[in-house]
């Protein structure tokens, strides 16, 4: 069965460019254009992976979502791929490091715009890692 992915990003034009790639790769993709709708969707049905934008609304609202997910015992298991345009802040604060260790606990991060091959590599990698985690119960 096709894996179900959710994209939370407030730029519909940008999302179209991500969704088209994931659609063609055979994923079932849903979109939420604001953090609130995103959280609602996450609570209504299960997703195999979340693609999350960081800078939404009035600030880094994506970080807030990521933090909420980490506190939720069920949603915590879902892999998250952060897609961000805020390279400048990240690269500046943590040159050479893709993710700041104390920023928020994330699974992976890619920068906007993201090449299809890289996007699919990260998505597939995260999905596979999640499968493996499930297969080996702690």
């Amino acid at each position: 069965m096709a894996k179900r992915l959710l994209i939370i990003d407030d730029d519909p034009d940008y999302v179209a460019g991500i969704k088209a790639i994931l659609d063609k790769a055979g994923f079932e993709v849903e979109v939420a254009n604001d953090p609130k709708a995103g959280l609602r969707a996450l609570q209504t049905r299960p997703y195999d992976l979340l693609l999350l934008d960081i800078m939404m609304g009035r600030g880094a609202e994506g970080v807030m979502i990521a933090r909420k997910l980490r506190k939720d015992t069920k949603l915590r298991e879902m892999p998250v791929l952060i897609i961000t345009g805020m390279r400048e802040q990240i690269a500046f604060l943590f040159p050479g490091e893709p993710i700041h260790p104390g920023f928020v606990k994330l699974d992976e991060l890619v920068e906007k715009p993201v090449e299809p091959s890289l996007l699919l590599e990260k998505v597939n990698g995260l999905l596979q890692a999640a499968e493996e985690r499930k297969a080996v119960p702690q």
Partner: peptide
């Protein structure tokens, strides 16, 4: 400056580039 540049210039350009990637891929 950083804020303006990243929001008003970088975000639209990223969206354009992302859709080019998608079109080419499709």
């Amino acid at each position: 400056f950083a804020h303006i540049v990243s929001h008003e210039m970088k975000a639209p350009l990223s969206a354009v580039q992302q859709n080019l990637f998608a079109l080419e891929f499709e």
